[in-house]
Nucleic acid binder design. Sequence first.
RNA 1: GGGCUCGUAGUGUAGCUUGGUUUAACACGUCGCCCUGUCACGGCGAAGAUCACCAGUUCAAAUCUGGCCGAGCCCGCCA
Length: 431
Amino acid sequence: MERILAKDVKNHVGEEIKLQGWVFQIRPVGKIKFLILRDRTGVVQTIILNKEIDISNVERESVVTIYGKPKLEKQAPGGVEVEVLKVELMEKAATPLPFEVNRASDLLNIKIDTLLDHRPFSLRNPEISSIFRVQAEIVRAYAEFLRNDGFLQVHTSKIISAGTEGGTNLFPIQYFEQTAYLAQSPQFYKQMLVGAGYERIFEIGFVYRAEDHATSRHINEYLSLDFEMGFIESEQDVINEEIRLLKYVFTCLKENCSEELKLHGVELQDIDTIPQLKLGEAIKVLKDKYNKTMETENDLDPEGERLICEYSKKEFNSDFVYITYYPASGRPFYTMPDGTGLTRGFDLLYKGLEVTTGSQRINNYDMLVDNMRKFGLKPENFEFYLEIFKYGMPPHGGLAIGTERLTQQILSLKNVREASLFPRDRFRLTP
RNA sequence: GGGCUCGUAGUGUAGCUUGGUUUAACACGUCGCCCUGUCACGGCGAAGAUCACCAGUUCAAAUCUGGCCGAGCCCGCCA
């Protein structure tokens, strides 16, 4: 007998069907019992009227097969329920459960650490599992948009000989007789592949940051959405590409994840255009409007980012805001200078958090080598990267989006680790 | 690397300031009984905690002190 999924039960009213899944909830009411069954498509209410049917050995979260007849019933959630004919216990769940996984999150009331300690179990909670359905859709839409726009998807090595931004923040690994490092970014490879002639490439891959911090917005391994494009006029081409990309991602989310967004109480704002502020302007806004003085002219601090987003929301009705024209001293060596000490680098802030960094890159070999030296790097260590620049590198630029951060901000999650299936943070290596 | 905070039944919290009527309380969950329309079901009852760990102060420590382990958040830095 073919298995019917929870979401399809309504199409089988009057038939005898087989359901399989986990017992989400059992509610005995006198002589009858309601058993809520969950499978990958959602939950369905079943009702046990026949008192011959014994489910006393069935625990919540046990795996069961239920034979029954769907019927229309206006008192049932969704207007349909399944009258149970037979229950087969396939695998019994131990008791007590680690926590009450069937609650809505405001009632679940659980610390992030407990949730992560029992990660596969916690994912049985519909609200928690929906985070990763949303994330999957973000990544899918990202790839689809770029593919349709002439970008080639590539996969580059995460084992590298040297960092893109100097030696700090890298995890060393033993690679036979050499020391290698986990890649903190696919930056060099992206650029090399633009120069290789693909012109437009994107990559979806984990990157690694050995940063010794413990905050709600940092993890040490995150999924980076990178793209790089050749033959641009300026960083504005990269920004425009991202705006169109984000519009597409949001459209897809609304179309394909409406249930998931509703579960999180999220109403996605339509993206029209995204305002831009030069870093200098942003710092001035902080001073004039919020009486906040930045200690450095290089970047905004987290409070500054939150305030600028507040400002952007008030002034431009946008959850997003680009910060542009960062000083060269605060950006990586490959960032294109604008000739006045500033660069063609930018960040994208979303609801108070940095989710993207990008720039136009330096495409002239001599300029790049020169800049490398200025940053205290030895060009001879980067021959593998620099070679293609000798043989004709077009003007190009690109960016990287932090997938977990974007997911976190879209769903207004408190901690970025909620948006990672198996997060690696300062202390956590398991599960 | 710097700073702040927290470890109490399976889960989430109260109690700690001012040590002693606390037999460590409450909610959810678990177990038992009752209930034919629940949907955070309801009612009655029960079990479940060497108060993270180690040492000290004291007649007496969940409570005070020191150490140790673990965790959360903020800053620097970053997506």
